[in-house]
Design a protein around this nucleic acid. Sequence first.
DNA 1: ACAGGAAATGAACATTGTTCAAGGTCTATT
DNA 2: AATAGACCTTGAACAATGTTCATTTCCTGT
Lengths: 213, 213
Amino acid sequence: MALDKEEMSEKVLAIAEALLNEGGADNLKARTIAEQAGISVGSVYNLFADLDEVHRAVNMRLLDRLGATGIAAMADLERQGVTDVRHRILAMAAAYVRFVEAHPGSWPAVLAFNRRRATQPGPDAYDALLDALFDIVAGVLKAGDFDLDDDRRALAARALWSSVHGIVTSGYVANSNSRQAEEIWHQIELLVGVFVKGLEHGGAFAHAETKSE
Amino acid sequence: MALDKEEMSEKVLAIAEALLNEGGADNLKARTIAEQAGISVGSVYNLFADLDEVHRAVNMRLLDRLGATGIAAMADLERQGVTDVRHRILAMAAAYVRFVEAHPGSWPAVLAFNRRRATQPGPDAYDALLDALFDIVAGVLKAGDFDLDDDRRALAARALWSSVHGIVTSGYVANSNSRQAEEIWHQIELLVGVFVKGLEHGGAFAHAETKSE
DNA sequence: ACAGGAAATGAACATTGTTCAAGGTCTATT
DNA sequence: AATAGACCTTGAACAATGTTCATTTCCTGT
């Protein structure tokens, strides 16, 4: 008995993820996949149109898992009765950092791939998953008493989460030794602290009072 | 008379930058460079060890130019007597956004390349250029009356600029149509406004007063 | 048992990075 | 001016890779 078409696809994706994690996008080779999966090159192309589709599928799984991680982190806090906005955002950020650290090769590949597809039109499943993350952040912000309408809160959520993302990715440009990890976390703590304080004091509308001080 | 070795290297880099800008890292091919430069493939490898070195050199030029742009933007404000921290940071961010928009293909390539070299040890000229940018931001923050020691101000500068970077790169994941550009700029305005307000109110030390409110 | 279709195979092709032996060019010295 | 020696240029050749497709193999329903 051989594996189902579905099962073989899963196997291929697991192998592909491992390859990406070890050596980045350049390490995703049709022949390596075929060899490790015990099938021929042609069969890989029977399961997926091309390597880009394999990469895309791996990324989907990663984003899905990241979403699940973030939601789980929030649920944990809910269960513990934590309502402080700063704490909750920091918990999400911590989950994000852990996730990135757990996927040293494949997460960068997600970003690189994401950038490559910028030429193609319209939103797709990627954007849907990212939107889900933003919505979680927006939900946390809603719990704070920040006097923000829905649009502005969504804007703040995107800005905040993209900022966390920027700190993490900038930080891992260099070697991911423990000093770097600490530096990243300090930056995130500072960002979130400043951000929440800024929201409390109406900083989200600073443009309306340019010269008032 | 033929071109100098130096001049030919310049020509190759100009061609390489154009190729990167058009089609990203995948579009940087030895044979295309050779053809457009009017030399043979082998000669390209005489000027540069491999394509990675070409890519690295192009990135250096880009980062240099970005640094010059940022410094120029700051000098302009100095000349105009603008001292408001928020305005100055926004001016730098605007310069950054303009720069990224002016290099739609090659800037992503800088980031992707940067990530690939994460395995190599120690800081290098890249980090030096990035540090220079952070220092400019830190200098601007110093002008504000934020009650930050040097270490904390440096941390804030890195966090703030990485955040701007994150917003810009996240935003350009999708098509860079004008709606996206506006969204990015709104996020940056919100981030900077909130960040400055947060610093004014001591948000940078929020971790020391977790439950005080 | 067998026909028909679906799936797997791997040889073959095109494209790419990179190397290197062969030949060419220039410069300084006699 | 002639020549040796260092340096440069060339482009053919090699290896690695993505992708295709004619052929073979396998399974399934009758």
